[in-house]
């Protein structure tokens, strides 16, 4: 009965994997014949400043996105964990951006971020602040995309943290209160350690999600300004489908997958130790 899976696996997993490995050693633009190039794709990769920049950009994205996401999610989850009215309503509201397509979110946020006419800058100027050149400056663009991604995904992580919080036994808090622990101490000595597993999960999930960052820069910035939002996925897409370097793009994909696995392993080590 597992035949369907085996067939599926052979066609859509095993073959592409093998073929991808095969492509690594070739130059090919689909329309003209394939050409064996040995390890030259790797040679090109290691000299490709733009690709490394794109990986760096992706890491920058993660470095902003993950802490922001954890802080926001944890904060709202703890509020939701209290006995308040309209809990379900708020929960549903926070979750709304998660289910809406990234395209919608990106088109919407591009307007929110617009320098002259965007909602965010209108609010800033209303309160007497300067406008921020959100997606128009090399320094702000990636943080802007990270903020947007956080806004989109945080609902999911609120729920995950909420599940984690509800798993913490009440008596721990009661005992701590009797011992005279302040709320901040309770947070650091009870809540955080108890959420360790959830934390690891959140970090790994948002890392995987972050590494496939594509549609946001694709729609919003096209990778600019000054390549500051060129994510690795966008770069690979461009190499393959813009410039027709299938073999090289496969090489990039392969290398990038290794980077992802490495980062996740390191994260796991770090979180587990803490």
């Amino acid at each position: 009965m597992s035949m369907p899976y085996v067939v599926y696996f052979c066609i859509f997993v095993a073959f592409p994997l093998a073929f991808s490995f095969f492509l690594i050693f070739h130059k090919w633009n689909i329309v003209t014949p394939m050409e064996w190039v040995g390890l030259r794709n790797f040679n090109r990769l290691f000299h490709d400043i733009q690709f490394f920049k794109s990986i760096r950009n992706t890491l920058v994205f993660l470095a902003i996105h993950i802490p922001l996401q954890i802080a926001m999610a944890l904060f709202f989850a703890m509020q939701l964990n209290k006995k308040i009215k309209f809990r379900g309503f708020f929960r549903a509201l926070f979750f709304l951006p998660v289910i809406v397509s990234g395209v919608v979110i990106t088109i919407l946020w591009e307007q929110l971020y617009s320098y002259e006419t965007g909602l965010l800058n209108l609010i800033l100027t209303r309160f007497g602040f300067y406008r921020i050149p959100w997606i128009n400056s090399p320094e702000w663009a990636m943080p802007s995309i990270a903020i947007m991604a956080t806004w989109k995904n945080v609902g999911l992580y609120i729920i995950l943290f909420l599940v984690g919080l509800q798993g913490i036994p009440k008596y721990l808090y009661e005992a701590a209160e009797i011992d005279g622990a302040k709320p901040i101490q309770r947070f650091f000595y009870i809540t955080l350690p108890a959420l360790n597993n959830t934390m690891l999960l959140v970090v790994i999930l948002s890392t995987i999600g972050g590494f496939s960052l594509f549609i946001e820069p694709f729609v919003m910035t096209g990778g600019g300004p000054m390549n500051s939002t060129l994510s690795a996925m966008l770069y690979i897409y461009n190499q393959a489908f813009y410039f027709g370097h299938m073999g090289y793009a496969a090489t990039l994909g392969f290398f990038f997958a290794l980077v992802i696995l490495m980062v996740i392993l390191i994260q796991k080590k770090v979180v587990e130790r803490e």
């Binding site: 591009e110 617009s114 320098y115 002259e116 006419t117 050149p133 128009n136």
Partner: peptide, 14 residues
């Protein structure tokens, strides 16, 4: 020169 002096708008317009 043009962009330094801000003669071309850098923003997107509605």
């Amino acid at each position: 020169q043009i962009y330094k002096e801000g003669l071309f708008a850098k923003t997107t317009f509605i």
